[in-house]
Simulated scan of single mutants.
Amino acid sequence: MPPRRAPETNNNTDFAALFTQLVNQLTQANNNNGGGGGANPPQCTFKHFNSRNPLKFSGTEGATGLLQWFESIEGTFLNSDCPDNLRVRHATSVFQKGL
């Protein structure tokens, strides 16, 4: 007999609160570290950001997957010199419809 799947729970409120909290923490940490900038601000086009192969996120990975995605996307931001004003736009481009 195949194993039974655990019933799915609807934790959209918890997920949204966790997502908001982590975004705020990452933004605050980035602001405390200077947040890039300088005389020649970096140019981070969508093509350049996407060429760094950011980790896709569907929302079915759970809390651990969300944390791993945050770490991965923050690394992608740093490697592509993505300014704060473009981060949300580029990060949301890797969201995928969950199964």
Results as ranks from 00 to 15, higher is better:
N32L: 13
P54V: 03
E74V: 10
A17Q: 11
L78I: 12
T9R: 05
K97Q: 13
N31S: 15
N32F: 06
Q96V: 15
C44E: 00
L99F: 14
N53W: 12
K97N: 15
D14G: 09
E8D: 04
P54E: 04
G38V: 00
F46S: 05
T20F: 06
N50T: 02
L55D: 08
L66F: 07
K97W: 14
M1A: 09
T60L: 13
T20Q: 12
F77I: 03
T13G: 10
F57G: 02
N11F: 14
V88H: 04
D14M: 11
H48K: 07
N11M: 11
N50R: 07
T45H: 01
G35Y: 07
N11S: 06
A16D: 14
F70N: 05
N79I: 02
R4C: 01
P42R: 05
N53G: 09
D81R: 06
Q21N: 11
L18Q: 13
S72W: 08
S51Q: 01
R4G: 00
F77W: 06
V23T: 12
K56I: 09
F15W: 13
D84Q: 14
G35V: 08
C44A: 01
A17Y: 10
T64R: 09
S93Q: 10
V23K: 06
A39C: 12
N40L: 06
Q21D: 14
L55T: 12
S80N: 00
G36A: 05
C82Y: 00
N40F: 09
F19R: 08
V88P: 04
